[in-house]
């Protein structure tokens, strides 16, 4: 039982790490980035390519992943999302175009990684880090599991605080509420958007590296599998709420774990989709979302 709870928390932390960046970009600058999973994977993949040559310690690897993720994300913003937002005067049209653009762009890193790895899973077996497991009697926990739990919750707290207290964070939230007024108040929308995308991408890269350590290896397609789970977590918690994503990720992981433990597991994929659907029907703002939501 205690083990199941710990497992659910770990799974939830993985979802959370992945979803944090996505939620941040969606909730503030209104970018639902479908290429998030690709960035996540490609950052982990870049770290893999480097660790094959030089054996790096885990902090260096995480930093590397975060940097690659941030760089890719900024590139994406400059080359694709900015032009879309500049051209489309209507915010809904831009939303849809960003969605499709993201889907298209997501294919590019995937194709490169698939080509190089031939879709064989890759890991960091050459890295200067080994997973060790501690048996505490009632529960078994590994060092990487602890690292993921701490990082996920720590980062969520940090970002939550940043949005609430720090100046750029406040400005960002202002954009999320009403971008026009925020601009009039002297908020530099472009710079903030770039900053947000960099943070979101950095989170994706960091999550990718951590996940690869935790799972031992990931495949180029791994990012896609996480995308819909992250959606479910965000929708469940409410777009734009950091506390919401935390709760959403944990609830999703909790339900999935319960279903896995009590049944043969073939219905697990239905949980994420079912939750998205039900939540949108019953409470489109999510558990912790802002009350303002676009509807008809």
């Amino acid at each position: 039982m205690a083990q199941d709870v710990l497992n659910a928390l770990t799974l939830g932390s993985l979802y959370l790490l992945f979803a944090l960046g996505m939620s941040l970009a969606w909730g503030t600058i209104g970018i639902l980035n479908f290429a998030h999973g690709s960035i996540f994977m490609f950052a982990a993949f870049s770290a893999h390519l480097i660790v094959r040559e030089v054996s790096l310690p885990i902090p260096a690897m995480i930093l590397l992943g975060a940097l690659v993720g941030a760089a890719l994300s900024v590139l994406l913003q400059v080359l694709a999302f900015e032009p879309i937002q500049r051209r489309a005067k209507d915010h809904r049209k831009a939303e849809l175009q960003i969605l499709v653009g993201g889907i298209g762009i997501a294919i590019i890193p995937l194709a490169i990684a698939q080509r190089i790895t031939k879709s064989v899973p890759f890991g960091y077996s050459n890295g200067a880090f080994s997973v060790s497991t501690y048996d505490l009697g009632f529960v078994r926990v590994s060092n990487i599991q602890l690292l993921i739990l701490v990082t996920a919750l720590g980062l969520a707290g940090l970002i939550g605080w940043w949005l609430r207290a720090a100046r750029p964070g406040l400005a960002l939230r202002a954009i999320g509420v009403d971008s026009e007024v925020a601009t009039m108040m002297g908020v530099d929308r472009r710079r903030l958007a770039l900053l947000t995308m960099a943070v979101a991408g950095g989170l994706a890269g960091l999550a990718g590296v951590l996940l690869t350590y935790y799972l031992g290896s990931i495949a180029p397609e791994t990012g896609d599998a996480f995308l819909l789970k992250a959606f479910a977590a965000i929708i469940l918690g409410g777009v734009g709420s950091i506390l919401g994503v935390v709760v959403g990720a944990m609830v999703l992981a909790g339900i999935e774990t319960v279903v896995l433990v009590t049944t043969d597991g073939s219905w697990t994929p239905a949980i994420a989709f079912g939750l998205i659907f039900l939540m949108l029907l019953v409470r489109p703002n999510g558990l912790f979302g802002r009350q303002e939501v676009r509807r008809t």
């Binding site: 993985l14 599998a225 999935e256 896995l260 597991g265």
Partner: peptide
């Protein structure tokens, strides 16, 4: 006997 999803990545529970 337990099942995992086609694209499952984490098998901790199982």
């Amino acid at each position: 006997s337990s099942g995992v999803e086609t694209t499952a990545q984490d098998f901790t529970s199982q």
